[in-house]
Simulated assay, not measured.
Amino acid sequence: MPSRIRSVVPGAVLATAVALLGPAGAAYAASPVPAAPGPDGGRWTAAPAPGGGARPSAQDRPYFYLEGPPGAVLDDRLSLTNPGAAPVTLRLHGGPTRSSGWLSTAAREVRVPPRTRADVPFTVTVPKDAAPGDHPAALVAEGGGRTAGVRVHLRVTGPALAALSVEDVAVERRGSAAVIRYVLVNRGNTTLAPRLAVRADGLFGPALRRAARALPVTLPPGRRVPLTEPWPDPPALDSVDVRLTVTAAGGAQGAAGATYTAVPWAAAALPPVGLLAGAAVWRVRRRGRVAEPRRGAAPTDAARTGLSRSAPSCTALSSTGTNT
């Protein structure tokens, strides 16, 4: 049977003590709410209960934050608001995380009358062998054809360890572009907000430089998150060492890399020696194009002769590589 909350007359606040949790006890507080639809279109909402009897809002507390040592019993209140014209029965339970099993509500079902807000107490019993650090949890309410969850940020006090690793780095070619794949793993006991820096160096110099920036993810302890990094203009012919460095508050840092070899389709049929020869010729010619002659000096006959002699040597190198 759902627990019933008696309606209140306008302007009054009702507090009824209900012994549902043994010696700790629990109390429902019900109060009227405006009949006008709220930010959720007039449907029921779930949020952390505010202090002083105020109306709950995202600006008041967007989530629960509870902190205590192993073995502690922590308590708070969940506000269920029904601005509609009909009563609603809501079922309460913990979220899918293991830490959500530490939560216990005053009742598993609550009937909220029309235009009423019900504050439902709950407790968090921290196991005596709980590891220090962050333990994400959630309270979930279901009813009236919808589901709403409220995050519970639970921290068990004790030595904090911030640690992470970067794993499974790989570069995947996609047409003229590429994508860098990797996995971030939180190896510590604190929630991390990681920052990523990327660099890539090839045979012909730097190929990519990206300064550290915040990633749009949050890593709870033990979480593995696969991520990708776009690379719209990778080199068309090069062997590149890609390096990812990830940092987070508390001194957490991890780094890993992979080698990426770019070969044009036309050159794929050449043997390795031919590819190296062709790369060497390309590099020499590229340097020759960007080199500037000495100011005010015209090319001498010897210089012109040297240039004319250099071409056959390069041709011979390419030819030798091709025939090998």
Rank of each mutant, 00 (worst) to 15 (best):
G149S: 09
P2W: 00
V166M: 00
A302R: 15
A36K: 00
G296C: 05
D168Y: 01
V166T: 05
R4I: 08
R55D: 02
T45E: 02
L196C: 13
G51A: 15
A162H: 07
V150W: 03
G175K: 00
L161E: 08
G149W: 01
P234A: 03
P127Q: 14
V150K: 01
P194D: 04
P232Y: 12
A141M: 05
R98N: 09
L237K: 06
G94N: 07
L90P: 12
F64T: 11
L244V: 09
S239I: 08
G101S: 11
A248K: 03
D241F: 07
T218F: 03
S99R: 11
L215G: 14
R187Y: 10
G52S: 09
T105G: 12
D201M: 06
P271F: 02
R286Y: 00
G95E: 06
W282F: 13
D241A: 14
A15S: 12
T300W: 10
V18I: 11
A280F: 09
R286Q: 09
A298H: 02
T315S: 11
L227G: 01
S319T: 14
S310D: 13
R55G: 01
V156W: 12
A26K: 00
A258T: 15
L237R: 11
L161D: 05
P312N: 11
G158C: 04
G257R: 08
R224G: 04
A148R: 06
T245A: 15
V225D: 03
R111W: 11
T300N: 07
A258F: 02
R285C: 02
E292Q: 09
R224F: 06
G149M: 02
V88R: 04
T305I: 09
A303W: 15
W44T: 05
P113W: 14
A279W: 09
A27C: 02
G251K: 07
A178W: 02
D233S: 14
A311S: 14
A49R: 05
A86C: 01
Y260K: 02
V112W: 02
H135Y: 04
P299D: 10
G158L: 05
T16E: 14
T123E: 13
G288H: 10
A269S: 04
A26S: 11
R77K: 13
I180Y: 02
A212M: 12
R108M: 04
Q59W: 05
V88P: 07
G145I: 01
S239Q: 04
D75S: 13
L317T: 12
A54R: 05
G257P: 12
P127D: 12
R187C: 11
P10R: 05
A255D: 08
A212D: 14
